[in-house]
Design a protein around this nucleic acid. Structure first.
Length: 320
RNA sequence: CCCGCCUUAACUCAGUCUGGCAGAGUGGUCGGCUGUAGACCGAUUUGUCCCCCGUUCAAAUCGGGGAGGCGGGACCA
């Protein structure tokens, strides 16, 4: 039974630090709190869904969940003015609600507590436990403007560690890009007498063009994309035949479609073999690698299924 | 506080010395070839030349002032 919980929580995860600690936490009697923080900036996309769904899975394992709308973090990382970021924060809360997080989910706006004296002292203490090099390297995958980092970007990881301590977080959820920040947080918090968090890292999705996802490059699927736009984006996605490595379309099956549909059915023209069904990703992946499944059929199926996943979310968002 | 260098398309940069239609590569878009995309081929697209003032028939280019970035120096009773 504990195993079932653990298996579910580990689904799709890139790594957990550490798995033993995670299993022990899920096993424990005491209430634990998990959180993920998001910089409110830009449209919500499939990458965000990955961590959000993990939070939902944690909720169903009896874990309390906090979604941190990290407005000050976004500000420190040069994502816009506080005014613009504030608007995004309200939008994000709407989106996350539409995704199906439980009613008990706590949405916390960073600036609501991150300016308290106690919190500030925590940052300053963390600053004494953290070398400049370490802080800077921790931001490698997160920083906007990595060339000429500003001091605010060194404060950023300290605040992330402070959040974990201040909010008494047991499990920190994030993309694998958060890894170095989380490791810093684990060490620094521990040396200051706090409980180190268990960290669950989700994979970072490739963009549809197989490059890094970026809203400015339009290579991602946003929750608000129309069904037509999803079709077009998937149609123009990079998808070399028989190649499973670094294939963004296969990623959609692995991380989104198979976890949600017991049976995945792909339509093909009769002359190319007609309809075919899969019950596990690995089978589909093997067929694709063997050239038994054509990229176009793979794409057409992906577009239909992704629409089924994103459509209901979009509907809720557009309702008001 | 002082000195030097840098700022031009979405990105990387050339052009500045010696003033004369705003450029290249990459990217984007469209088409061809593929039962997808990419690659390849063809076409096409993009500007506050950091800002202000001045000189000039004419300024990205010269002069003055300012902003931002980078590097160094100085200070270290």
């Amino acid at each position: 039974m504990i195993c079932v919980k653990f298996e579910q929580v580990m689904n799709n995860v890139d790594e957990a630090v550490t798995e033993n600690e995670l299993a022990a936490l899920l096993d424990a009697e005491t209430k634990i709190t998990a959180y993920a923080g998001y910089e409110p900036s830009g449209q919500l996309h499939l990458g965000h869904l990955l961590t959000a769904y993990k939070l939902i899975e944690l909720q169903s394992s009896g874990v309390d969940v906090i979604v941190l709308l990290a407005d000050l973090h976004a500000y420190l990382n040069e994502k816009g003015t506080m005014d613009q970021i504030g608007k995004w924060a309200r939008y994000y809360e709407k989106c996350f609600t539409a995704l199906g997080l439980a009613k008990e989910t706590k949405f916390v706006l960073g600036s609501d507590y991150q300016l308290e004296p106690d919190y500030t002292k925590l940052i300053l203490r963390l600053a004494r436990h953290t070398t400049l090099n370490r802080a800077r390297r921790s931001m490698d995958e997160v920083s906007r403007n990595a060339e000429d980092p500003v001091v605010s970007q060194m404060i950023y990881p300290l605040m992330q560690a402070a959040d974990i301590g201040y909010l008494k977080i047991g499990i920190a959820v994030g993309g694998i890009d958060q890894r170095k920040i989380h490791m810093l947080a684990r060490e620094a918090l521990h040396s200051m007498g706090f409980q180190s968090p268990v960290c669950i890292h989700m994979p970072i999705l490739l963009g549809l063009d197989a490059n890094k996802m970026s809203s400015s490059k339009n290579n991602l699927i946003a929750v608000e994309d129309s069904s037509d736009s999803i079709k077009k984006k998937i149609a123009s996605a990079y998808c070399p035949a028989r190649t499973t490595e670094g294939n963004p379309i296969l990623q959609l099956y692995r991380y989104f479609i198979f976890p949600r549909f017991k049976r995945v059915s792909l339509e093909r023209p009769k002359r190319f073999g007609g309809q075919i069904e899969y019950e596990e990703f690995s089978k589909l992946e093997m067929d694709y690698a063997a050239g038994k499944l054509h990229p176009l059929d793979l794409k057409n199926g992906a577009a239909l299924y992704i629409e089924q996943i994103v459509g209901p979310i979009r509907a809720v968002l557009l309702k008001d």
